[in-house]
Design a binder for these strands. Structure first.
Length: 344
DNA sequence: AAATGCAGCAACCGCCATTCG
DNA sequence: GCGAATGGCGGTTGCTGCATT
């Protein structure tokens, strides 16, 4: 049996708050202080649920609450913290003065979750030439505002994706937090010839073999193609995902982690011949089939891959980028400080 | 100009943790 | 120790404005 509702909701006003209601709430709290939310509406003469009053106060009326205009620095910090802490919005908000968990949550859902898909991909043509492809430009031509495509609204996509739910709140841990792997560049490479594993401390590699139906070894999973409507991916395909600690010739290798701004970033370097594929990529056209299987790269679900990496158990004693197991706020603060110390 | 549908955001809902009698 | 009350959190819904057709 669930808990009784915080109020009976009978005769209570719902929806947007009016200026008069805001004034009444602010005046009451200024006079009597916060707390006793259940009895507050009646005492303040508001036809609102106490919970609604609390939310309104915390998110909008409280002193020091900043609204809108999230700066680049705040943006970076949100992404970085989210990459490590997950959907613990209140925890993230505690490191952004004046910002509320609700605003950060909304900002993430409406802005940043999309930006995750706009990672860069860098193609090296076997020499020193490096071209960075901005996926946003590749997909911009197909972007439109009007006209709904069934099943592709952010909400339906979110439902389809069903991202990993936030970890349960952890209160008791050992004396020192378990550190996640430090942020590293995401490097995706297709290596038909020898290539040194782009992996260093804390970063792990992932081998994705689209031709292979069974995972060969390592940690298996699947890469689901269900990105946002902006993405180039179809919705139904899945690939077997094999996580390998070492490079393997001829397979797509993804070495994924979080870059220094916290954004999931994918750089692709590959050995290929000719500029045909590059031109096709830059024009947003179909890439001819070749040894590099560039279209396979384009169709990868990098976010799903990242999630798989994030949740996969550590191998070969590589540090697991797990959530911090901080026992209390002090240790958590320490962890966040440690995390942010890598920002430069 | 009207219809359609996306994007942003405020608010609601349900659950869990903590506090208190 | 127990149960109710309360606070807090994250997920979700639904409204509104605007861009596009």
């Amino acid at each position: 049996m669930g808990r009784a509702p915080c109020c009976d909701k009978v005769g209570l006003k719902r929806g947007r708050w009016t200026a008069e209601e805001d004034d009444a709430l602010a005046n009451y709290i200024a006079e009597h202080g916060e707390g006793s939310w259940r009895s507050l509406p009646k005492n303040a003469g508001l036809l609102r649920c106490g919970k609604s009053c609390r939310l309104r106060w915390i998110n909008y009326l409280r002193d020091g609450v900043k609204r809108g205009n999230i700066s680049k620095e705040e943006d970076d910090l949100i992404v970085k913290l989210h990459a490590t802490l997950g959907n613990r919005w209140s925890l993230i908000a505690s490191h952004l003065p004046g910002r509320t968990d609700n605003e950060i949550k909304n900002y993430w859902n409406s802005h940043l979750s999309r930006q995750i898909h706009t990672f860069r991909r860098t193609y090296a043509a076997g020499n020193d030439t490096t071209v960075t492809i901005d996926i946003t430009k590749l997909t911009a031509a197909g972007k439109r505002r009007g006209g709904r495509t069934p099943g592709q609204s952010p909400r339906s996509v979110a439902k389809n994706q069903q991202t990993e739910p936030a970890k349960t709140k952890t209160k008791d841990v050992g004396s020192s937090p378990t550190l996640p792997a430090k942020a590293k560049d995401v490097v995706v490479s297709t290596s038909s010839a020898s290539s040194s594993p782009p992996q260093s401390d804390g970063a792990r590699s992932v081998v994705v073999d689209p031709e292979q139906n069974q995972p060969s070894n390592g940690v298996s999973g699947s890469v689901s193609h269900s990105l946002s409507s902006d993405g180039p991916c179809s919705e139904d395909e899945t690939w077997p995902l094999v996580m390998e600690p070492v490079d393997q010739t001829g397979l797509l290798e993804a070495n994924s982690a979080v870059d220094q701004t916290g954004l999931w970033e994918a750089n692709s370097s590959m050995n290929w011949d000719g500029e045909t594929e590059m031109e096709a990529l830059l024009s947003g056209g179909v890439v001819p089939e070749g040894p590099a299987q560039v279209d396979d790269l384009l169709d990868m679900d990098w976010e799903g891959l990242a999630a798989d990496l994030w949740d996969a158990p550590a191998q070969n004693d590589v540090a697991q980028p797990a959530e911090p197991q901080a026992a209390d706020s002090q240790e958590l603060d320490w962890f966040v400080s440690w995390l942010l110390s890598d920002a430069s």
